[in-house]
Every structure is written in structure tokens, then in C-alpha cells.
Amino acid sequence: MTIVEPATRSSDARTRIGVGVLALVVVLAAIAPLLSPAASTQDVVMTRFLAPMTRDLHGAFHFLGTDRLGRDVWSRLLFGSRISLTVGVLTMALSLVLGVAVGAGAAFAPRSVSAVLLGLTDFALGVPRVVLLLLLAALWPPNATQVVLVLGVTGWMPIARLVYAETRSQLGRPYVDGAAALGARRLRILFRHILPHGAPPVLAAVTLGIGNAITLEAGLSFLGLGVQPPAASWGSLIASGRDTVVNAPWVGLAPGVALVLVVISCALIADGLYERR
């Protein structure tokens, strides 16, 4: 037991750091208009390529400098976080619903249906996700809703597997039999009894998935196949920094650092949740 305790404490600390950073980003995204010196899409040619921590000729302070259209990088980063975070959360909400439906369905259903659902999960895990994303982006004009739908529909498999394994292992337990004997319906047993038991690993998978979805969305936007201008996610910001690597490296560096911080926070929270099993 003495070996376990310090590990748990350090994992608690890591979780707290993860939650703290993520909460900070969410708050900053929520109050973005209050923190931006100028509207994020306002173009001012006279203030192009200002270095971070400088004032422009109108007296506005640019914490992270400006890009090639004179737009404040800090404001763009804040408004971009709204899109990136929303896409990440909505995507995983969709994946969670699909994963619970397929996983629990496979656990409760008769053998033949269960085999089909599990086979479907294995198949979907084998499909190269980025290939599918690129294909869909090529065929339909890209927009945020489509990105959420596609990422959500291609990200439910790990959750389905977890829910299936957890439900199967709980099904024979006395408390489940007890609930059934009291006349509880299957859905009630699933949502009130079984899922709360298996919640930590599933939530861990969801948190990891949020980070993953944000990265993938950024990747699509980086290739110009995600949210379209003038709206910008972190991915489109990194892409716009690509052309100014030499004279204004901060344009591409800032959104990347923000992205990495959020993904690490998600991983830290997921780690903590796994250890809480």
C-alpha cells in the first residue's frame, strides 16, 4: 500500500494541473471579446508583423504580436480556441453517444447481433481515419459541422470497446441481478448501475479523444479543409504562420504551443482518471 499512495498523490497533482490549464483556456475562450484589443478579423495594413509585446501606432498593445495582415495574434488565438474547443467537445459527445450505443448494444443483444456490432467496431478501427477525412473534405465543401460529424463518426470505437467490456464484466454481478429482480428495465440498469461503475476509463478515453479531435481538426484546417476563413481555428492559424516562418515565427508558434498545452492537459486528466479505476 505504501507504494500506491505516493503514486496516487502525484497523479492527483497531475490531474489538478490538467484541469487547471484546461479551465483557464475555457475561461479565456469564453471571455475572448473582453481580452482582445481589436476584432480578430480586422485588417490593419499599417500594423503588419509587429513583434510580441509591442505597441502599434494606434497605441494598442500586442501581447503576441501581429500577423501579415496586421491582425492581433493573441485575439486570433483566443477566438480560434472557441472553434477548436467546441469542435473537440462536440466531436467527443457524438462519439460517446455512438460508443455507448454500440458497446452496450453488443453487450445486451443476442449473440448474432453482438457479433455484427463487434465486427463493425473492429472494421471501423482498421479504417485509416485521416484518409476518410481527406476524402470527405474533397467531396463536400468543408465546414465546422461536417468536421464535427466526420470526426465524431470515426472516433467512437475505443469507447464502444470499453463500454462493451465493462458492461459484460458487470452483467453477472449480484447488484445487477438484484436490480433486475426489483424490476428495473435494461436501460435503467445500464445508465443507473453499470455505466457509473465503468465511468472513469470511459471518461479517460473521452478526454484523450478531445485532445485528439482538436489536433485532427487543426490538421484539416492546416490543409485548408477544415473551418473556412475568416473564421479561424488553431490549425488555420498554424497554417497562416507557415508562410511567415522567417520574418514572423510567432504567428505559427503561438497556436501550436496552445494546442500542445491543451492536448497535454487532456492526457494528464485522462491519466488521473485511469488510475482512479
Binding site: 485532445g211 489536433t215 487543426a218 490538421g219 492546416f222 498554424i238 504562420g241 507557415r242 516562418v245 505559427g252 508558434l253 501550436g256 494546442l259 500542445v260 492536448v263 497535454i264 492526457a267
Partner: peptide
């Protein structure tokens, strides 16, 4: 945690 396109850029 780093996306490949960003690390490549750096």
C-alpha cells in the same frame, strides 16, 4: 502531444 505539421514547422 505535438501535431506533426507543427513540429515540422518548428
Amino acid at each position: 502531444a505535438m501535431p506533426g505539421y507543427w513540429l515540422g514547422l518548428v
